[in-house]
Design a protein around this nucleic acid. Sequence first.
RNA 1: GCCGAUGUAGCUCAGUUGGCCAGAGCGGCUGAUUUGUAAUCAGCGGGUCGGCGGUUCGAAUCCGUCCAUCGGCUCCA
Length: 643
Amino acid sequence: MITARFPDGREQQYESGITGQEIAQKISQRLGKEALAIKVDEEVWDLSRPITKDAGIRILTWEDEEGKKAFWHSSAHLMAEALEASFPGIKFGIGPPVDKGFYYDVDPGQNEITPDKLEDIEKKMIELARQGNKYIRTDVSKADAIKYFTEKGDEYKLELLEDLNDGQITFYQQGNFVDLCRGPHIPDTGFIKAIKLTSIAGAYWRGNEDNKQLTRIYGVTFPKQKDLEEYLVMLEEAKRRDHRKLGKEMEIFTFSDDVGSGLPLWLPNGGIIIEELEALAKRTEREAGYHRVRTPHIAKENLYLTSGHLPYYEDSMFPAMEMENTKYYLKSMNCPHHHKIFDAVPRSYKDLPLRLAEYGTCYRYEKSGELFGLMRVRSLQMNDAHIYCSREQFEQEFRAVNDMYLKYFKIFNIEKYVMRFSTHDPAKLGQKYVDAPELWLKTEDMVRKVLISSGIPYIEVADEAAFYGPKIDVQVWSAIGREFTLATNQVDFVQPTRFKLTYRNENNEPETPICIHRAPLGTHERFIGFLIEHYAGEFPIWLAPQQVSILLISDKYANYAEKLGKLLNNAEIRASIDNRNEKIGKKIRDAELKKTPYMLIIGEKEAGEEMLSVRRHKQGDLGSMSVEQFIAHVKEEINRTLN
RNA sequence: GCCGAUGUAGCUCAGUUGGCCAGAGCGGCUGAUUUGUAAUCAGCGGGUCGGCGGUUCGAAUCCGUCCAUCGGCUCCA
């Protein structure tokens, strides 16, 4: 007998060798039908695998992330089966589940898989799914596995086998398709009811640029047709929020072929958003003891040789301009300039921490294929600052920076994010990272300590640090689900030394400060791109480019509207008058579509009584107010959303 | 940068067995209407069919090349 512990703490005895399927069936008929896999302690198993030990048990269904993963992983095998049937001789790389679906990397050989063939592959998959073939797991010896794939001529699977040891190799077969696979899989293909192959793309074998490029086919599958329909609706919603679409519609930014790709132009509405963000940042930083500085957009080659950036990043810097035998580069970061400001006057321990802030404009030559709306651009303005402090002050400063992040997240209602703590890989010291093993460990410990003690949730990733020190990136997701770094907070123990930055300590001895690079609001480009999607264009009122639209019933009331507009603008409320020759319904519709927070409807009644009819975007008529009441109402909303 | 797809008016899109002056809706402009909480009516403008080169009697349509955008890969100080 074995004892199974369920997630609710309940325990149950079963015959040794019972399968997950049998357990699910015993719990309820419904669970027996919906079960996809089973979690046995920390491992996910096939439902058909006999359980012969006491274990924590959890039956996985479509509602569980791990259940979905097994479902999609099995779907990848199903797609592979369909591909093999349609494209004889096709070779397979890897085919894992991803966040929303799955992919398989394939080498179609002489064939070419084009988007118009996806529908046929889907049909084939449906046909195979309906056969309800079981996913059968078998243990295979390494020799047999090598023999099988050698005969099949699949060099990719053979390469994968090289890294596996005898005794840990399993094959899975469903229908006529056999794959090297660790599993787990769902019981049979019959569970897969709805299939959508979403895209085809090139992908380097094993993610290495120097390797051959395989064809990657993405797809997503569901246990019910209805789930697929909901998914397609969700995709539509994502498209609706896409900052590239909204940014154009709302006249926030644009690109011009004549200016260059990745070089955004901010329209007046974007200009307002930028001004508001900067006002927030400047106020916040002033209160936190930062000093504002300004530095030029270019500098001589030597500066970036000193900083160490040039050898690491020359490929992604705009090429040098040469004047009078001197090379100048467009700056791709602000730090070297700030270091020079630190160095401009002799520093004492009494000057520390010294916090230098600048919304600096930088230029980076991102590869053409990497450009992406406002999220990945070649000119960017960073909410940058560098904090120079002593080792003793580091923890407190680092913590204060993290608190600033959290304050901003609250203002912007950012709830879904991950703090990624990136550390170095000791094997790459001297190549990817500066060779200072002790400093790395010491600094990483300090950072970890701050993160843990301030209770900030974080994940730690090895081998992702900057060359000059560990960093924390704030990861968020765009409307279309792409992950990107919104903000960054980095420790730098290298550049201060390279720039020979020192201050005098209490004993009048020179010491090197630590530098913290931080940009809680990231860059204007990325942050505003994110905000557009985050708010679906419906900005909080303090950020809305146009806050109030004055709508005239008829042009008879133009004088009153003019006066009103002036009153509002004097109260620093952004208002404009819609005096077009249109009916009020049309003006309201247009203002609603432009997502203007407030509409003021002005007709005979309002003009006569010097009152306003107030309408709130997406809410409707709020009734009548005096001008003073309305101004107070808007001011209150601005204060409430900005704090 | 690599693989694949796409590029027609300000926007969304029709228009390919190569062939009359390249179309629609919305937006814009002009006029009429003077209007009460999500589209008043009429008229008028507006396009080097992404750029360049080629094939052809003839190219938005076929071919080449470049550019840009999109989906991924790689990269991201």
